[in-house]
Design a protein around this nucleic acid. Structure first.
Lengths: 300, 300
DNA sequence: TGACTTATACTCAATATGAGCATAAATGGC
DNA sequence: GCCATTTATGCTCATATTGAGTATAAGTCA
């Protein structure tokens, strides 16, 4: 029953610099930081928290378990034991130019529908998937997989783009052999940097989870500075979700939910009319942290 | 690095009998079924699936990872190694009177707000929590914890009942020392059967996850028979979520989403006017399984 | 000064939602 | 057969939410 096992903790540590969501990496952006579970850790959560805070020197806000993997890829070559990886999403406030931070969308350019680069990448993916489906033997399978492509990548305006399907889209590209991790030669692969092992997959899981969370829970504020303007908040939401937001409606929803309160200060350097600064009213809402945020995310 | 470890898989296997959600247990309802991870399993998910199907003889529909625990409670006494438990939610269609099945609400009577028993239990909990809070030293702490009680148990109509907060409510009762698992003597505990280890906590996690899932994904149908009337579907949704639904609005939403199609058959034995039978159109929707269901859940 | 930027307030139509009314079609009791 | 009761099903209506636009304020920069 008791066999040789290694438990590995993998952290997707995320922060936002300017408006750009970033992830902490090691090995020149090829891997996520990871470490073994130590017996001194009171719990898994405590283990991740302590270890990440020691590594980066930053206090961590939100920490959340993502997924536990134990696939055959993860069988250790050296011992006859198995490798179990428990992945976590951790949010931290800011960082002053330390190394290791990479942009989310270096790995998933197609997830950034806001940018021209993202849209170009999506157009390319559409062509490649079309080609992939066309090469299938059975007609029924062709139809089924094309349906899947259409709904995941919102091809042809039949369905709306769903920003939370990051993992499903990556898995489709993997199945279609369009990413380097699936053994695809770099010149045929879709744009986007690959990672070692299944780390890009784990990053996709984290992105999907965070995109889902910011919709219903006030976790964005873990990534914001103490005081911020409503446009700054909107820009962070947009860059995390990868889609545009209607500015006036965004303000309306934030205000009417009383998630934030005015600091009384004014931000002068907006490039236009000065803006009021806000802070998250976490104290009031800490006890009733279950009410949920609603953010209007729309198409470009 | 490589230490003695035991990986345990714990399954919350759920089915619905009549209108009643049930969970598979062992040890006279005191434990959830669990087994060690075997090296023959290709992946964790495959391991759970194979093992549960072998144990029950039923095919499993939806399988979903819940959470991985490694707290100090779980350190093995016999060896110096650590115990890791990976919990799963699994859904199966029906069962013909096998042993081991228990009602959800035997463990969590307060989660069933539909029933008189549930409402009575909630009234009792309100009194007990009030007493717990009153005994606190600091006034600030009293206010904070009472806020928490109010929002979790929807005390005094200030906030609406949120059916997805099963885990948070259980944790509050645990902290308040009102459940047997927290060392509370049975005569002082809140109604509801306790379980060994942290198994009731894991069940709470599963219930919360399933309540959240049925709102946005068409997983209810994994629990339904092949053909069903709309009222049967509604009753299952209500019993899973524990709250009432407006019948006409429920039908409207189900129909307009085209989740189901008529079988052409008629169910005569409704106790009133015969009802049309429906089936889930899974074939059509399998490819675009990401659209999401919307179910109107309201208060009694 | 005028073009441009951002901030902020307000309006309006389309849609979604919650709640109810009305009618249809079966049952069982008398 | 008649009537109370049960469930099924179709339809209406007020209200809330949402998407999208207009209008105005108050800065910057050339």
């Amino acid at each position: 029953m008791t066999t040789h096992m290694m438990i590995e903790l993998i952290a997707v540590l995320t922060a936002v610099r300017g408006d750009v969501p970033q992830v902490m990496t090691i090995d020149h952006g090829r891997q996520l930081p990871s470490g073994p579970l130590e017996s001194t850790h009171r719990s898994l959560q405590a283990g991740v928290r302590a270890w990440v805070e020691r590594q980066t020197g930053h206090p961590i806000g939100h920490v959340e378990q993502l997924y536990t993997f134990a696939d055959h890829d993860r069988i250790l070559a050296t011992t006859q034991g198995r490798m179990i990886a428990i992945s976590y999403l951790a949010l931290t406030r800011s960082h002053a130019g330390e190394t290791g931070w990479r942009d989310w969308y270096d790995y998933f350019p197609w997830e950034n529908c806001k940018s021209d680069e993202g849209r170009a990448c999506l157009a390319l993916i559409e062509r490649l998937l079309c080609h992939w489906v066309a090469g299938m033997g059975h007609a029924a399978e062709r139809v089924r997989q094309w349906q899947r492509c259409v709904s995941l990548f919102a091809i042809g305006d039949m369905v709306a783009w769903n920003d939370e399907l990051v993992l499903q889209r990556y898995e489709l590209l993997y199945e279609a052999g369009l990413v380097a991790e699936a053994g695809c030669p770099p010149d045929r692969a879709v744009p986007g940097q690959s990672m070692h092992h299944d780390h890009r997959r784990i990053l996709a899981t984290a992105m999907a989870r965070l995109r889902a969370r910011i919709r219903y829970r006030p976790v964005v504020f873990e990534l914001m500075p103490e005081a911020f303007t409503l446009l700054q908040l909107q820009r962070v939401m947009e860059s995390l979700s990868g889609v545009h937001v209607h500015k006036q409606n965004f303000r309306r929803l934030i205000m009417q939910q009383q998630l934030v309160e005015e600091t009384g200060e004014i931000e002068e350097r907006t490039g236009g009319r000065p803006a009021r600064l806000f802070r998250f009213c976490g104290e009031v809402r800490q006890a009733r942290q279950f009410v949920g945020t609603k953010i209007p995310l729309v198409q470009p």
